[in-house]
Computed example of a mutant assay.
Amino acid sequence: MKILCSIFSLFIILVTVNGDCGVVTKREWDGLSPLQVEYLARPVDLVIIQHTVTRTCSTDEKCAEIVRNIQTNHMDNLNYADIGSSFVIGGNGKVYEGAGWLHVGAHTYGYNKRSIGITFIGNYNNDTPTEASLEALKALLRCGVEQGHLTSNYRLVGHRQLIATESPGRKLYNEIRRWPQFARDVTSIKNP
């Protein structure tokens, strides 16, 4: 009976961590298990938005393929323990599990241990984010707050505000700058 209760408890934890947020799990996109994990102190108050600078995707099959390719590159070529992003969002409006809510990612040097990194598939200097992908981000953030992964007063920033990069691209950056959680002044966030 104790074993059955333990298994049921583990199932509930896993469903709570990803299931309620509608996240496509690594198992579902055929991702590899991380080589090692470091746990992220939660709740987190910083969300960093990035882009992949790859082609966009609009189908489940193509988006999952791109996420697998990113993970392969991160693990095989960059020697990361896993895909770097906490989550990846496709043009199909689906959110793909990366390091997730629980683990430290490898998305923004100097900020990984205190943030969630969410990466959009595409090059948003050229591409316009789909309404479905923007709604997926909003739903993920809402769910993160509801489940206690994010503080209710979390700050949303573009990758470019913290390090020298064009990410998340002008068009995506222009979109998130209008959101109420967007932090225009990153002085208190930025590493010295």
Rank of each mutant, 00 (worst) to 15 (best):
177 R>H: 12
19 G>N: 15
34 P>D: 15
188 S>P: 07
90 G>P: 13
39 Y>K: 13
9 S>T: 13
76 D>S: 15
116 I>A: 06
175 E>Q: 11
161 Q>L: 06
136 A>I: 02
27 R>G: 05
99 A>Y: 03
48 I>C: 07
26 K>T: 04
139 A>S: 14
142 R>H: 12
151 T>F: 01
131 E>S: 12
147 Q>S: 14
133 S>E: 06
88 V>E: 03
76 D>W: 01
108 T>M: 06
57 C>P: 09
34 P>Y: 06
168 P>S: 05
146 E>N: 11
115 S>C: 11
87 F>V: 10
111 Y>Q: 06
51 H>T: 15
32 L>S: 13
91 G>Y: 02
92 N>W: 00
23 V>G: 00
80 Y>F: 08
113 K>D: 11
68 R>F: 03
22 G>M: 04
52 T>R: 04
20 D>A: 12
37 V>L: 11
32 L>R: 12
33 S>G: 02
69 N>T: 14
110 G>Q: 15
39 Y>G: 04
76 D>C: 02
94 K>T: 01
23 V>A: 01
142 R>D: 11
129 P>T: 09
84 G>W: 01
10 L>P: 00
18 N>R: 05
93 G>F: 02
31 G>K: 08
105 G>C: 02
11 F>K: 09
61 E>D: 13
9 S>I: 09
6 S>E: 12
117 G>R: 00
182 F>R: 15
18 N>Q: 11
37 V>F: 00
113 K>F: 00
49 I>C: 15
191 N>W: 06
104 V>P: 02
101 W>A: 00
118 I>G: 10
46 L>M: 11
46 L>R: 10
38 E>W: 00
103 H>K: 15
27 R>F: 08
59 T>K: 15
120 F>Q: 08
65 E>K: 12
172 L>A: 05
75 M>F: 02
6 S>P: 00
56 T>S: 05
188 S>M: 07
5 C>I: 12
171 K>T: 14
47 V>F: 09
66 I>R: 01
178 R>K: 13
167 S>W: 10
97 E>S: 05
151 T>P: 07
52 T>Q: 05
13 I>Y: 04
17 V>H: 05
58 S>W: 12
21 C>H: 03
83 I>F: 00
45 D>V: 01
165 T>Y: 04
165 T>F: 12
145 V>H: 06
6 S>W: 08
137 L>K: 03
90 G>T: 05
97 E>R: 08
101 W>M: 05
6 S>K: 07
162 L>F: 07
90 G>I: 01
127 D>T: 05
28 E>S: 11
183 A>F: 02
138 K>G: 14
47 V>I: 11
31 G>Y: 15
105 G>N: 08
